[in-house]
Design a binder for these strands. Structure first.
Length: 418
DNA sequence: TCTGGGGTCCTAGGACCC
DNA sequence: TCTGGGGTCCTAGGACCC
């Protein structure tokens, strides 16, 4: 495939998004070190980042690093709305907008330059409009591929624009730390550092058999291609999810049958409702159990037909959790997760299955499966009118204290505007 | 006083089929 | 007289991303 010759891919990335929104909503927070979140930092302002505070950090650690840090509440609805508005601005310049999270998107402006000027000019206009019309800082990278544009936007932060023209690609990349590359996280970075590879230039110079041994075939291939010939992944405006899941951190709790049933019921309810909303079912159910020390185990099962009813998913998840807990020698757990994959469109004839694992009851179209599905549809309809708290299975009421508001879960569920 | 919730992709081994 | 190779699906774990 011939490489793209022009740098027409933009990566637009809102700076410290949640924190910037909070500073926009409350001017007294501007220029102040703030963190969004409570037990854990969801986002930190640049003023807080200067102290080393970062997303994912435990709250107590953040306070340690930055004594003046202010924790502020999450205006989750506003995050969604403002994020949507920024994407709308992007869509004014091209229909080829691939939103990859609430606060960032790729654009392909190859077909827009007649109308709106060069890619860099388009990037400048987008940045200006987002600042003026919405009030938020956004950084933009411009390059020939998505991967490069993304690196460029990271280099552009905060509140900047970086264009990498095709003739300057290698020169641009060489001095940058390997950690800026997609797919290089802490583990890979440490492994590379262990053999003296720190910059992308170091990586490009390393013999590929060495990288393959160290990182595996796929990772080595991907990283190698970045430094040499580029993989021009298309900007895709819509992609379907491959799995749907939910999790709940519990603190340290005894894994009692009551806790398992209540928590898994709550999680299964969230997951199954989203599947039904999307008109999908999934054949593979996975449960994850986490213990103290962040160690976790998973158990999964693949069924002959897909699931999307709350009760069936709850039963399966409970069985799988039991299997995961067996032989672990742990009575205390810190997190439960339920996920459904192997998704497919629901066809009316493929109603599931009241079942247990390993028994022979998973026949499509069974009467119990159909009635469960009907019950769920009624619940869905009531919730659509009166809100999700209006009705639910009695055992599904989540017993744990909810440390994370519903709104945050909903925010994380979808990236498309609603 | 060990950390949230939503995802994707890769690897390795085993079962099974031809 | 137990032997080759390739493909697909499944499971469990891990790394990574926002």
């Amino acid at each position: 495939m011939a490489p793209r010759q022009r740098a027409t891919i933009l990566h637009a990335d809102l700076d410290a998004f949640y924190a910037s929104v909070e500073q926009l909503l409350d001017p007294s927070l501007r220029d102040a070190p703030i963190a969004v979140g409570e037990g854990v930092v969801l986002a930190a302002s640049y003023e807080a980042k200067a102290f080393g505070v970062g997303a994912g950090m435990p709250g107590w650690r953040a306070r340690q690093l930055c004594p003046g840090l202010r924790f502020v509440g999450g205006h989750f609805r506003q995050y969604q709305q403002l994020g949507d508005r920024v994407i709308d601005v992007c869509r004014d310049f091209t229909p080829l907008v691939e939103r990859i999270s609430i606060d960032e998107a790729f654009l392909d402006v190859a077909g827009s330059t007649q109308l709106f000027g060069s890619p860099a000019e388009i990037a400048t206009t987008i940045r200006r409009r987002v600042r003026r019309e919405i009030g938020l800082p956004v950084s933009v990278g411009v390059a020939r591929t998505k991967h490069l544009a993304k690196i460029a936007s990271q280099v552009a932060k905060p509140d900047g624009l970086v264009e990498v023209t095709p003739d300057r690609e290698l020169e641009f990349l060489r001095p940058l730390p390997v950690g800026l590359m997609w797919g290089v996280g802490p583990a890979t970075r440490d492994r590379l550092a262990g053999i003296g590879i720190h910059s992308i230039g170091d990586l490009a110079a390393a013999p590929s058999p060495l990288l393959q041994r160290l990182l595996g075939e796929a990772a080595a291939g991907k990283l190698g291609s970045l430094a040499g010939n580029f993989d021009p992944r298309r900007v895709e405006s819509a992609r379907r999810a491959a799995s749907v899941g939910a999790q709940a951190a519990l603190g340290v709790r005894d894994a009692t049958p009551q806790l398992l049933r209540a928590t898994l019921g709550y999680l299964a309810d969230r997951v199954a409702a989203r599947l039904r909303l999307a008109g999908q079912v999934g054949r593979t159910v996975t449960v994850r159990v986490r213990f103290k020390g962040l160690r976790s185990v998973t158990r999964s099962a693949t069924l002959p037909v897909g699931v999307s009813t709350t009760l069936t998913l709850t039963e399966l998840a409970t069985e799988l959790a039991g299997a995961a807990l067996q032989d672990q020698g742990e009575s205390q757990i810190t997190l439960l997760a339920v996920s459904v994959s192997n998704l497919m469109d629901q066809s009316a004839l493929q109603l599931e299955l009241p079942l247990g694992l390993g028994d022979d009851r998973h026949r499509p179209g069974s009467a119990r499966g159909a009635s469960r599905f009907a019950v769920d549809r009624s619940i869905d309809a009531i919730r659509a009118r009166y809100g999700r708290e209006a009705v639910g299975y009695a055992t599904v009421a989540f017993s744990g204290e909810r440390r994370i508001p519903e709104e945050f879960r909903e925010l994380a569920e979808h990236k498309e505007p609603r």
